[in-house]
């Protein structure tokens, strides 16, 4: 899923701007620290593609609040491609990178970080991936946007913004690291949902 350039679509509405995203991440960072009584034994695992830069931004904020934390081992990446339940519905997907702290994730609190929480299937795959990698003390979930329409009993512990959407709409998250700007857009697609792979946007991986 290569991040393409941000093409402005006529019916797209910006729901979160750069400042909103920054504020949401700062709040989530504080909530993470509050809930876990500090940042010790914590690791933020971003789900590629756009979860990874979000995890690193959160880690930067955690370190700025608690300077004693080890920034190096605080953030990583967890690729879930090979654990997905919809592999056979699409052409073979490229596999992203998994980066864990050198000491592994055993007995740590893992905070999964993703851009959009939708069907919950990506998170289901992530939980399976985690159980093959070790046995964390707890797993929590942070999402920049929760757009509803869950298909599995999964909920986020930290949400940047709850975004009530219809399933006909698309939610696009643009990040500076991959798209050159920070924004969350809702696009109401006039056309009927296309079968097959569809346009490669780093969101809605859980879409059916």
């Amino acid at each position: 899923m290569s991040p393409g350039p941000a093409v402005p679509v006529p019916q797209s509405t910006v729901v979160l701007g750069e400042a909103d995203i920054a504020r949401a991440l700062t709040r989530i960072a504080h909530e993470v620290l509050e809930r876990n009584k500090g940042g010790a034994d914590l690791v933020l695992l971003g789900i590629p593609t756009r979860g990874v830069p979000l995890a690193h931004r959160l880690a930067d904020r955690l370190v700025s609040v608690e300077p004693g934390l080890d920034r190096e081992s605080l953030a990583g990446a967890l690729d879930v491609t090979m654990y997905r339940d919809d592999l056979r519905r699409h052409p073979a997907r490229p596999i992203g990178q998994t980066q864990l702290p050198a000491s592994g994730i055993d007995d740590l609190v893992v905070v999964l970080v993703d851009d959009v929480l939708y069907s919950g299937r990506t998170i289901r795959a992530a939980l399976d991936a985690i159980s093959d990698l070790g046995r964390p003390r707890a797993v929590q979930l942070a999402a920049l946007v929760d757009r509803g329409h869950r298909e599995l009993p999964i909920r986020a512990d930290y949400v940047g913004k709850n975004l009530p959407t219809s399933q006909a709409e698309r939610v696009r998250v643009l990040l500076r690291e991959s798209d050159g700007e920070d924004a969350v857009l809702i696009e109401s697609s006039a056309e009927a949902p296309r079968p097959g792979p569809g346009p490669a946007v780093g969101t809605e991986r859980g879409a059916r």
Partner: peptide
């Protein structure tokens, strides 16, 4: 190059304790 890149990610999974993937 795509095959080699995929192989690099596969190789990374083979240093884990649990080498089996459900793919």
């Amino acid at each position: 190059v795509r095959i080699l890149d995929t192989a690099a990610q596969m190789a990374a999974t083979q240093s884990r304790e649990i080498k089996k993937l459900p793919t």
